[in-house]
Amino acid sequence: MFRKRRNRRGPDAGKRFCIECGLKPREDGPARYGPGALFSVRGDLYVICLACKQLKEGLPALVVRRNAMCESCWLEQRQRQKERQRQREASENHTMRYAASDLDR
């Protein structure tokens, strides 16, 4: 919080809080940062991953896609999607070959 209202000498400086405090539940409700939260600390992007619920460094390329996951979970998800796609294509190819052999009879 180096700019705008909550900077060190700004009018809302008393509302500043650290990341650790932002992750803890408040007395009157939930934590300030929950799963899916993206925030920047001195130019570095951080995310509370939607999949593993851990605070990890985020990837700017993923933010563009509005995907609030850490790199490792995102890569795992991507791998699972590719595997499902391969299985779907293999199943379709098998079905098409089976249908073609029925036509030959």
Score class of each variant (00 low, 15 high):
M1D: 12
F2W: 04
K4H: 07
K4M: 04
K4V: 00
R5D: 15
R5W: 12
R5H: 13
R5F: 11
R6S: 06
N7H: 15
N7A: 12
N7G: 08
R8V: 13
R8A: 15
R8F: 07
R8Y: 12
R9T: 15
R9Q: 14
R9A: 14
G10H: 12
G10T: 10
G10F: 09
G10R: 13
P11E: 11
D12I: 00
D12V: 00
A13T: 15
A13L: 09
A13Y: 11
G14K: 13
G14S: 13
R16Q: 14
R16I: 11
R16F: 01
C18A: 09
I19L: 10
I19V: 15
I19Q: 02
I19E: 05
E20T: 09
C21G: 04
C21Q: 10
L23C: 09
L23F: 02
K24I: 03
K24P: 00
K24V: 04
E27N: 01
D28P: 00
G29K: 06
G29H: 05
P30T: 03
A31H: 04
A31I: 01
A31L: 02
R32L: 12
R32I: 10
R32C: 06
Y33I: 10
G34Q: 11
G34P: 00
G34F: 00
P35D: 12
P35N: 11
G36D: 11
A37W: 00
A37K: 03
A37S: 14
A37F: 03
F39R: 02
S40Y: 14
R42Y: 05
R42G: 08
D44E: 12
L45V: 10
Y46N: 09
Y46A: 06
Y46F: 15
V47G: 02
I48K: 11
I48H: 07
I48M: 07
I48R: 13
C49R: 05
L50C: 09
L50F: 00
A51L: 03
A51K: 01
A51V: 05
C52A: 05
K53Y: 04
Q54Y: 00
L55T: 03
L55K: 06
K56Q: 13
E57T: 08
G58I: 04
L59K: 09
P60I: 06
P60R: 14
A61H: 14
A61L: 07
L62M: 08
V63K: 15
V63H: 11
R65D: 06
R65C: 03
N67Q: 13
N67R: 13
A68G: 08
A68L: 02
A68P: 12
A68M: 07
M69K: 07
C70H: 08
E71W: 01
E71F: 04
C73M: 01
W74C: 03
W74H: 13
W74P: 01
E76W: 13
E76R: 15
E76Q: 15
R78G: 01
R78T: 02
Q79N: 10
Q79S: 13
R80T: 08
R80H: 12
Q81Y: 04
Q81T: 11
E83W: 00
Q85S: 10
Q85N: 07
Q85M: 10
Q87M: 04
Q87G: 02
Q87F: 02
R88F: 03
E89H: 03
S91W: 01
E92N: 05
H94T: 04
H94A: 11
H94M: 06
T95P: 00
M96N: 06
R97L: 09
A99M: 07
S101E: 15
S101L: 14
D102N: 12
D102G: 09
L103E: 13
L103V: 05
D104I: 10
D104Q: 15
R105N: 06
